[in-house]
Write a protein that binds this DNA or RNA. Structure first.
Length: 260
DNA sequence: ATGGCTAAAGCATTTAGA
């Protein structure tokens, strides 16, 4: 099963680039972030025509997540538990039925949190606390689980081309990184780091200041696997050249191959 | 502190991203 995450930065703006990548990469399942669309405006027919089931959790203008799957989906749920007041569309879950078994897939768009300190940063940390609770619940099932998406966290200095530029940013502050590690240390595996070590691996390049041309990137899109999923991991790659295409998102896809 | 760019809402400019 090929499972991918891709922050597309607007479904309308990616009307050409997203189908182009799907046709080339042929993922079985992809979790999308920042669809920036209400559910009714999502062009589901385009993807249904390519053989994908479409499940969206959108809102007007900002945020919004979705799951596209060529495999059957069961028990789709929308929203991160723990705060009934939270109206931001950043979390969707579904059980994907693979050839050899099932996996619970969570698609997430973790809050940016800038400027820090401030209410947006407080929201980010509170959201990560809620995510940790949900992650612990899912681990307790002892089933394969993948939590994949835009985490808006740079885990380590080697995950940024210029770490010194991020020291006061919500993506790299010690509190953000500690909250990320608390989730990881419940027992999840960072799929990319299980397959690749060292610096120079990024998933986001700013549109400004020729960041792509200078390879001034950061690694903030992650796939975290429960032990039962990590045991089935055979490959993980960043599709970095998508950033060089026409009208690209500022993020690129990251995918895993799982023997499920 | 800002932000050289991009997207969305909506029609001029603001908000948000990271």
């Amino acid at each position: 099963m090929k499972l991918a995450t891709f922050n597309i930065n607007g479904i309308k703006a990616r009307a050409e680039a997203l189908p182009r990548w799907l046709n080339a990469a042929r993922p079985d399942v992809v979790c999308l972030q920042e669809i920036k669309s209400v559910d009714d405006a999502f062009p589901r027919e385009v993807f249904e025509g390519m053989g994908y089931r479409v499940e969206t959790h959108g809102q007007k203008s900002f945020n919004g997540v979705a799951i596209l799957s060529r495999l059957p989906l069961e028990d789709v749920t929308r929203g991160l538990p723990g705060d009934p007041e939270d109206e931001q569309a950043r979390w969707i879950e579904a059980t994907v039925i693979g050839d050899k078994g099932a996996i619970r897939v969570c698609g997430l768009y973790l809050p940016n949190g800038n400027p820090a300190p401030g209410p947006k940063y407080d929201y980010k940390l509170a959201w990560m606390d809620r995510m940790q609770s949900r992650a612990a619940e899912l681990l307790a099932t002892e089933e394969p689980v993948a939590m994949i998406g835009d985490y808006n966290v740079i885990p380590q200095p080697e995950d940024a081309a210029k770490p010194e530029a991020w020291v006061e940013d919500a993506l790299f502050l010690p509190e953000s990184r500690a909250a990320f590690r608390r989730i990881l240390h419940l027992g999840f595996t960072d799929a990319f780091r299980a397959c690749h070590q060292g610096p120079g691996h990024y998933t986001f390049w700013d549109y400004q200041a020729n960041a792509w041309e200078r390879n001034n990137g950061i690694r903030i899109d992650h796939l975290l696997l429960s032990p039962q999923a990590a045991d089935r991991l055979t490959d993980c790659q960043i599709d970095r050249m998508v950033r060089a295409g026409d009208k690209p998102s500022d993020h690129v896809p990251v995918w895993v191959e799982l023997d499920i």
